[in-house]
Structures are given as structure tokens and as C-alpha cells.
Write a protein that binds this DNA or RNA. Structure first.
Lengths: 210, 210
DNA sequence: TAAATATTTAATCAAACGATTAAATTATTT
DNA sequence: AAATAATTTAATCGTTTGATTAAATATTTA
């Protein structure tokens, strides 16, 4: 087997294979993807995949990790920011996240499917030494909010779940929703952009229920 | 090839294979499932699968259709009921649906993944000659609600999407949520049951935003 | 430019997998 | 009980698929 140089390669070939792999894996998942599909999509011979990445599984691990890192931890920085209010956090989170999801609409289904297959393995890879849910600054803010009697006395996780649900679920159900309503992707995206302003208002309405 | 009798069989074997297939297919999806896994799960020889169902694909089609019918059209009867108010519809829908999801927590990810792979084919199989989204009685009720100036002037589909999102998404994200918060399945289900009362209240709060 | 290394390809291997076959066993019918 | 049909199994076939090999071409280094 030929040895690769230690010098960092900008190798457009390697990058093209990775991009093809990302496209096919994200669309079809690990099992339904054939290495030959990736090679064809990339415009190279099959053996190149194994030359650059040793195996289908190793290539998948790379793509999978990158997809999960794009999907998950972008949240953490926002919910632990001590300089923003609860309401501001939600506004920033929703706005950034919906922009990301419009660019990567297939990410949620891919990531949640993968996590479903092996939660511990995948989540620990990304969250290795990170803070727990309970430790987030956002949860502290919520607990103060409840303690002051400003909001309803329910488990704060409900509101967190609702925020994620209303942001992410429409993208997971997009094919179904668009088929049932006759929307095309442009109209769907327009609807999702509307939600950048609407979701924080809805969450605020939930928080003000006595 | 032996011929099967025309008489309807209660054949426990056929039923056992179907149940094994449902379990494995729903958990791992079509591509990741090996017919040998199903045979082993059912406790029979591999050839039995092909004897009863001719092929992996035919067996999958049966399971898939049944899963989708369990997941989707239960909604239609409720949202087209002319004897209930908008608020009542939401209460009944949420309560029934959450009960169903606690019993079949893997259904949403399976169905939405399958629809993602081929939306037209699958949705038409279930909704063949059914009413469109626009034609549902629930949408008419919402349009009256908006016309009377009772609620915010937004696309009614947002509220519909929010209801589905808050019901279904937690089950899709369950492995992630439980891992992050340290909940076990019992605690998770308790949280979901709480939502049977909470979601209608949240939706009502959204509807009353001026 | 020549040698060495990296990249790319065609051909092929071995294992996994869906499917089939033919024979054995069990159940039903006459 | 004998004959017929249904059910179940072990063995195996042909493809598909991930991976490897060895050789050809391109690129880099000396």
C-alpha cells in the first residue's frame, strides 16, 4: 500500500469524495448507501474510496461526526451565554437554527436516525466532556423565572422541548407537509423564515400562562 | 412451489414472521435489516419468509403500509369531525396521539424516514382518494376564527404544524433527550402524558395572541 | 532528467445476502 | 389408512457489495 505524505493535502480528490459521501450518506443513510454510489457521485473509481478512507465505515464515521457537530453543539454556546436573557436566547437560537436548517434540511432526520441506532456512542463522541443539561445557564434562568412566580410551575424541559420541536420538526416532516398542502420548497422555506419571529412569540405566550 | 389454500389462515407462523418483521424493520429500517435477522427473531428458517411473503420487499411493503396507516390517518377522522370545536379537536387529537406514540415510540422516525425516501409513492398509497389539507373541516374552523378577528392573522398551517411538532418531535428526539437529561423511559413517558393537558393550553395561548 | 512517491484505474476476491430448490415432516382430506 | 396438500428445513445458487491487488499514470523530489 502506498504511503501518504505527512504534509496536509488540499487534495481536491479527497474533498470531492467526502462531499459525495456526505450527500449520499445524508440522503440514504449508512446501510442503503453503496460505496459505488459515492464513487460515481464523486466521479472517481471505487478503489479511491478505500485508498483515501480505508473503509466505508471510517468514511461514514467522519461524515456522521461532522453532521452531528453541525446539528448539535451550535446550541450549547447560545444556551450558556450569561450575557443574554431567556427571551434573547430563544430569539438567537431560533434564528440561527432555522437558517442552518434551510441550508441543511436533511440534517435532522439523518442525525436523529443515527442517534436512535446508538445513542450513547454518538452523543458521547460530540459531548465528551461537556456540561449536563441541568448545568446550562438557560436552565438556571428558567428556574429563577419559575421561582419568582412569573410563569407556570411546570418542568422547564417542556419549554425547551417545545422550542426544539417547533424549529426542527417541520423540516423532518417537510416531504409530508409539502405533499399534503401542495407547497413547493420555496414556499416551505418562506414559511420557515416566518417562524423565526413567530416561535419566540409563541414561547413567550407559553411562559406567560398563569 | 407449493400452493397455499384459498382459506384464510390464522397461521400463527405467518403472524409470528410478520411481528418479527415489524420489530426489526421498524427498528433498523429496510436496508439495514437482513432477512436472516427476521427469521431468527421469529424463530424460523430463512426460507419460510420467502415461502410466506415471496420476498423481503413484499414483506416490507406490508409492514410499512400498516405502520403508516397507524401513524397517519388516525388524524383525519378527528380533524374532519363537524361536531367538535377547534379546541376540542386539538384536545382529542393530542390525547389519542400521545397514547398511541407511547405504545409505538419508534413509529414517527420510521414513517417519516420512509416518506422522506419516496414521498409520492407512500403518501398516495395511504391517502389515495382522500380530502386535501385545504378541504378539512378543521381548516374551515380556523379560517372562521381568523375572519372574526379572534386570533392572530397568520397562516393556519403554523398552528397545525406546531401541534404535530409538540406531539411527535419529543418521541423522535427521545434517545437524545433522555441521554442529555438522564431520564429513563418511565420518566420520559410521564413527561409525555403531562403534555396531553399542556399542549392544548399552549395552542390556546398561541391562538389568543393579538 | 531520473528516481521516488503519490494518485488513479481495471480486474478480481471473499463474504454477505436474498432467493430457490428439493426433500422431509406435518396436517388435512377422502 | 392412504392420498393429497400444506408447512418446514437444510443445502445451495447467483448477485451484490466492500475490499484488495497489481499495474499504469501523474506528480514531486533529488
Amino acid at each position: 500500500m502506498a504511503k501518504k505524505s505527512n504534509i496536509e493535502k488540499n487534495s481536491s480528490t479527497e474533498e470531492k469524495i467526502k462531499e459525495a459521501a456526505r450527500k449520499v450518506f445524508t440522503q440514504k443513510g449508512y446501510a442503503a448507501t453503496r460505496t459505488r454510489d459515492i464513487a460515481e457521485e464523486a466521479g472517481y473509481n471505487l478503489a479511491l474510496l478505500n485508498y483515501y478512507f480505508r473503509s466505508k465505515e471510517k468514511l461514514f464515521d467522519i461524515i456522521c461526526l461532522e453532521n452531528i457537530q453541525l446539528f448539535l453543539p451550535s446550541v450549547i454556546g447560545i444556551i450558556n451565554d450569561e450575557s443574554t436573557t431567556l427571551q434573547e436566547k430563544i430569539e438567537i437560537l431560533v434564528s440561527n437554527y432555522i437558517d442552518m436548517l434551510i441550508k441543511n434540511p436533511e440534517l435532522p432526520l439523518f442525525v436523529l436516525s443515527e442517534i436512535h441506532k446508538d445513542p450513547v456512542k454518538l452523543i458521547n463522541k460530540v459531548w465528551a466532556n461537556n456540561v449536563s443539561h441541568e448545568g446550562t445557564y438557560m436552565v438556571k434562568q428558567w428556574q429563577e423565572f419559575v421561582a419568582k412566580g412569573k410563569g407556570p410551575a411546570i418542568n422547564p424541559i417542556h419549554i425547551f422541548v417545545n422550542t426544539l420541536s417547533m424549529m426542527i420538526f417541520p423540516f423532518i416532516a417537510s416531504p409530508l407537509l409539502r405533499n399534503r398542502t401542495g407547497m413547493n420548497i420555496t414556499e416551505f422555506n418562506k414559511l420557515m423564515l416566518e417562524r423565526k419571529k413567530l416561535i419566540p412569540v409563541w414561547i413567550a405566550a407559553m411562559l406567560n400562562i398563569k
